[in-house]
Design a protein around this nucleic acid. Structure first.
Lengths: 132, 132
DNA sequence: AGTAATGATACCATATTAGTATCATTTGTC
DNA sequence: GACAAATGATACTAATATGGTATCATTACT
């Protein structure tokens, strides 16, 4: 089971690279540095732009820049963007079988795992990773 | 992100039903009780048998029985059977890019989540769920 | 012999993930 | 203004995982 998908992982790497530079970077440059398939990386940066994590500039000399503080970009944020909201305890039987949602013995236990994971993931920011 | 797949969830339900009875049960009976697609449930029980969680008897009057103590069947066990070993921190870049596996800043943090999850999941057994 | 069960295995359908391709739009430079 | 270099938007393809079916072989009770 993967906690992070490739999108998310690439996004982390790209953001780390961008946070280190602090200036506008074109995809071409990042591709060289990160060795991520170019069109794939492009789409990732575009999604980050839509999510307002990056800013972008079109045209010659354009590229992407960090728009949000590195300390305010956490793994949960990125996971939410690329993998949807983090919820491990999603009941498989919402609509059908499950007779007792409230009292479901699994839910409460798994929620604890989810809570722990969320707290951890929120604490992991680009700024924090950059320091390492 | 689902922590448990349907296989695992169905397995839990089936095992709870079987632990409550304690005697040999045929798939037909369980299907009625659990409302799980018959051939799918069969395959699940067969996998549990291979994993030595259940015993089985062929032929007329045959079926499946719990072979392992309910207290010794945990969610991690079932997840391992149906979803592969639980490891959230699996590095996406094992073979290729990742330059520094040991010092990877993500790994250590995610390992903590994994450890917490494993401990929790190990503590959730069929016996425990049965008591609720 | 017949029937009711599991064993084994191959198959199909759908969803998700990973990645590609293409065309439109913007913008700096000559 | 023309051209080149960048992103915006979007549709498509390939591979893998998940959820579920179908079928035939084997076993065992009556």
């Amino acid at each position: 089971m993967k906690l992070l998908t490739r999108d998310t992982d690439y996004a982390v790497r790209a953001l780390l690279a961008m946070a280190a530079r602090k200036s506008m970077v074109a995809v071409s440059d990042l591709v060289i540095e990160l060795k991520i398939p170019r069109p794939f990386l492009r789409r990732i940066l575009q999604r980050l732009t839509k999510a307002d994590v990056l800013g972008s500039l079109k045209g010659k000399g354009g590229g992407f820049v960090l728009k949000r503080e590195p300390a305010k970009i956490s793994l949960v944020d990125l996971m939410a963007i690329f993998q949807g909201p983090v919820q491990l305890s999603e009941c498989l039987f919402k609509k059908k079988i499950c007779p007792n949602r409230k009292t479901c013995p699994l839910r409460s236990e798994i929620s604890e795992i989810e809570d722990f994971a969320l707290t951890k993931l929120r604490s992991i920011t680009i700024a924090k990773l950059l320091r390492k």
